[in-house]
């Protein structure tokens, strides 16, 4: 397995409070690494740390984030800016607010290519066309503003932005929490399909084990800044060792019950 990024012994404090405690997570090419835990467990901070974008108040006590042999926590701002969005990109929970309200969505995707790639106008247009087809949006959508699009469409735009420069790693921070269930599934299927074609690694953050079940290869369960359980999805799901993991798994609405209440069309 091709290890793309490794978070090693990461410990982060806010003042005296330890919010990430000795966390070890690796991301592999072609695999989805899920980070699961309830609200406030430190998932987002772990993801932001790997881009060296922790809030100013955060104190990195120890640890490193290795990407291409470099420690992301140590390299210069100019260097890391070239990595962000190009080699490691991120998709957020709220697609609507993550887009600039006064900029056409096509221009927002275009900006990624303009700042990270040195390409000519016709190549640019070609790549944009390709991106819209990858995320299954019509090209006219690009000429609209975020408020004219649905949540699912906005999330597709975000994914197109994130994928625009062919990143090695895609971080998704609860990418479907703000969407309704059918749209959720569409987006997740789309992401998996694109991943199969491009072989990038995904760090997938969620609090929902039913999404883990759909998406993940490897699972890390996080609680109060500590990873309490790690392993391959099957192992964690079928034989959870930690009580907290069992508790989270119990929160999945059982499929049988759900089917009775609202039949899922597939």
């Amino acid at each position: 397995m091709d290890k793309l990024l490794e978070i090693k012994d990461l410990t982060v404090n806010f003042g005296e409070k330890c919010v990430i405690d000795n966390v070890n997570v690796s991301i592999f090419a072609g695999r989805v690494t899920a980070l699961v835990g309830e609200s406030g467990s430190g998932k987002t901070l772990t993801a932001l740390a790997s881009l060296n974008l922790l809030p100013e108040a955060a104190l990195i006590k120890k640890g490193e984030v290795l990407f291409r042999g470099q420690d992301m926590l140590k390299i210069s701002e100019t260097e890391i800016r070239k990595i962000r969005g190009k080699d490691i990109s991120m998709v957020f929970q709220e697609p609507f607010t993550a887009l600039n309200p006064v900029m056409r969505v096509r221009d927002q995707i275009k900006e990624m290519l303009v700042i990270h790639k040195n390409i000519k106008k016709d190549e640019l247009d070609l790549r944009l066309k390709e991106l819209f087809s990858i995320v299954k949006l019509s090209e006219d959508t690009g000429f609209r503003y975020p408020h004219e699009l649905s949540g699912g469409m906005c999330q597709r735009v975000m994914i197109a932005m994130a994928l625009s420069c062919n990143p090695d790693i895609l971080i998704m921070d609860e990418p479907t929490t703000a969407l309704d269930v059918p749209v959720q599934k569409e987006i997740l299927d789309l992401v998996r399909q694109i991943q199969e074609e491009n072989n990038f690694g995904i760090l997938f953050i969620t609090h929902d084990f039913s999404v883990v079940n759909l998406m993940a290869d490897d699972v890390h369960v996080m609680k109060e800044g500590i990873i309490v359980e790690s392993g391959e999805k099957q192992d964690v799901l079928s034989a959870p060792k930690h009580e907290y993991t069992r508790h989270l798994i119990d929160c999945i609405p059982r499929l049988g019950d759900e089917r009775k209440r609202f039949p899922i069309q597939d």
Binding site: L53, K82, I83, R84, M90, A98, N100, P101, I115
Partner: peptide
């Protein structure tokens, strides 16, 4: 959020200020 998201995507400060 969109400013934060621009930062995460490697947009420079000047560009964030004047374009976003």
């Amino acid at each position: 959020d969109f400013v934060h998201s621009a930062k995460v995507q490697g947009v420079s400060d000047m560009r964030i200020m004047f374009r976003h």
